[in-house]
Nucleic acid binder design. Structure first.
Length: 493
RNA sequence: GCCGCGUUCGUCUAGGGGUCUAGGACGCCGCCCUUUCACGGCGGUAGCACGGGUUCAAAUCCCGUACGCGGUACCA
């Protein structure tokens, strides 16, 4: 049987980083096994539905390089791929469960359930639930006479369908990440399968869809482990072979706990994939970083393309413990991929960013040199613009910490250098000549190299750091350099 | 509280009874390179949660404790 996996997010918001990793592991597993990667939208909670979320999910996966084989955007034989569009199906399967004695109708109002909980709490049960014991004293098709149940259903009274959890059973199954896990049914509640609005809950829809869509492996976050026994019970009740389970470790916040939107934001970590897109991160870097958050190929390698990861990925190498999101390591990956990318490939992207920042890019040749000069020192592509802003405009201000290196004698030295390069013709205005001129200035004034170099750098770039000074000056051109020195001399004295 | 899952350097991880004096990566520190800042190169720092077993031998197996995380909804 060929492998079929699904990524099944609910469109309740933008795709966050944890969801992206779950998608990635599913994708990697699918590709490794020449299987099919399915996208299914779990939109059964109408109250939490967010407009545009589905588009965001698809766009995010595409950006990361994951090709969806089947999904709402790519219909195939197992559609529809939105649960809301599969609604009639769930009711039928729920009925099948009821008829088979595995589920029942419950007519209790939320107030009545609340009342039951309060009553049990008062008598010492800290977490009462609607289960094999309490259902005996509630209003459902197990306790009510058949004719009354029929009447209520015919009347159109509101009801839910609940799973009839067996009283005392052990549910055991093998998880590809965790090994054998087992649960006692005594601790499980009679999960609602069909809500009173006619929509299924996650549990029913998920099991029905995974089965009817031919899903062979369920790869999802650990937050689902606790409800997995209910799902196993459902497969059994339907008489279906359950898919193989694999519960992934959660991505944790540096301060502890599951990496939530709120936590991530206060810690300066972008949570939504769209923030990585708009933040100009390299998708290859995020993918590589994420793949190693809870998995490793077992050797000392760190860098792998998506294709290589597909080749290497196996579920038995996924770790069990939660993995803390380390933004610095992500940046290391990002930096790596920037350096791996050729100047030619970087060029159009830098051009676009520069134009978006309102800069005149001064021609392809000029921009190419800018990218070359900065290539080894940026860690994110937008730094070509921020760090290299002086290539596009005269510095508006001078970096404060750099100014500490502007000493009393700096003006004089900069002036001396200016007069030396002033005599160079436009064609003589090249890095080597500019360097010689500075060396001459150094010699004549009997000072250290940095004594002249740094003030010149500050005057012309506004920064105390940056790419090779002489190559930068050459690119800027004689007229511009001289003019910047004039302005600096004027402003810094 | 109850149920479940987990725990190797600060972080991500390798390791699955002897080859572990515990390996790699990020970070951090130092040195080299160097006109600055980076890049790069070299080196360093730092860890088997704790307590009992089992065994000739335990980071590795078992039990317990602690701690962490998840679940405990007509949310997913």
């Amino acid at each position: 049987m060929s492998v079929r996996v699904r990524f099944a997010p609910s469109p309740t918001g933008f795709l966050h980083i944890g969801g992206l990793r779950t998608a990635l592991y599913n994708y990697l597993f699918a590709r490794h096994n020449s299987g099919t990667f399915v996208l299914r939208i779990e939109d059964t909670d109408q109250a939490r539905y967010v407009e545009g979320a589905e588009e965001d999910i698809i766009k995010s996966l595409e950006w990361a390089g994951m090709t969806i084989d089947e999904g709402p955007n790519k219909p195939a034989d197992f559609g529809p791929y939105r649960q809301s569009e599969r609604k009639p199906m769930y009711a039928e399967y729920a009925k099948q469960l009821v008829d088979g004695g595995h589920a029942y109708y419950a007519f209790d109002t939320t107030e009545e359930i609340e009342e039951m909980r309060e009553r049990l709490k008062a008598s010492g049960n800290p977490s009462p639930s609607y289960d094999s014991i309490t259902r005996q004293s509630m209003k459902n098709s197990l306790t009510l006479p058949q004719d009354e149940v029929d009447k209520k259903l015919a009347n159109g009274d509101e009801y839910v369908v609940r799973l009839k959890i067996p009283r005392r059973e052990t549910v055991k199954f093998e998880d590809l990440v965790r090994g054998v896990v087992s649960f006692e049914t005594a601790g499980l509640d009679d999960q609602v399968l069909m809500k009173s609005d006619g929509m299924p809950t996650y549990h029913l829809a998920n099991v029905v869809d995974d089965h009817t869509m031919g899903i062979t492996h369920v790869i999802r976050g650990e937050e689902w482990l606790s409800s997995a026994p209910k799902h196993m019970l459902l497969y059994k009740a339907f008489g279906w072979e359950p898919p193989t389970m694999a519960h992934l470790p959660l991505i944790m916040s540096p301060t502890g706990g599951k990496l939530s939107k709120r936590k991530a934001e206060t810690e300066g970590i972008p949570v939504n994939t769209k923030d990585y897109i708009s933040g100009n991160y390299e998708p290859e870097a995020l993918v590589n970083f994420l793949s190693y958050l809870g998995w490793s190929p077992g050797d000392d390698s760190e860098i792998h393309s998506l294709e290589e990861l597909c080749e290497l990925f196996t579920l038995d190498r996924v770790s069990k413990g939660g993995a803390v999101f380390n933004h610095k390591k992500l940046m290391w990956y990002n930096e790596h991929y920037i350096r791996e990318t050729s100047v030619a490939d970087l060029l159009p992207r830098v051009k676009k960013l520069a134009e978006a920042a309102g800069f005149e890019t001064k021609g392809e040749e000029y921009l190419t040199t800018v990218v070359e000069l900065l290539h080894e020192r940026v860690s994110k592509i937008d730094e070509f613009i921020s760090m290299g802003s002086f290539f596009f405009e005269t510095p508006k201000e001078y970096d404060e910490s750099a100014l500490k290196k502007w000493k009393d004698d700096s003006s004089g030295l900069v002036k001396a250098y200016q007069s030396k390069i002033n005599v160079l013709s436009d064609t003589e205005f090249i890095a080597s000549a500019l360097k010689s001129a500075l060396e001459a200035t150094v010699e004549e004034n009997e000072v250290g190299f940095g004594k002249v170099m740094m003030p010149v750098r500050i005057a012309t770039t506004g920064q105390g750091f940056g790419p090779d000074l002489f190559a930068s000056l050459e690119l800027l051109g004689k007229e511009e350099v001289l003019s910047r020195i004039d302005i600096a001399l004027d402003q810094l004295n």
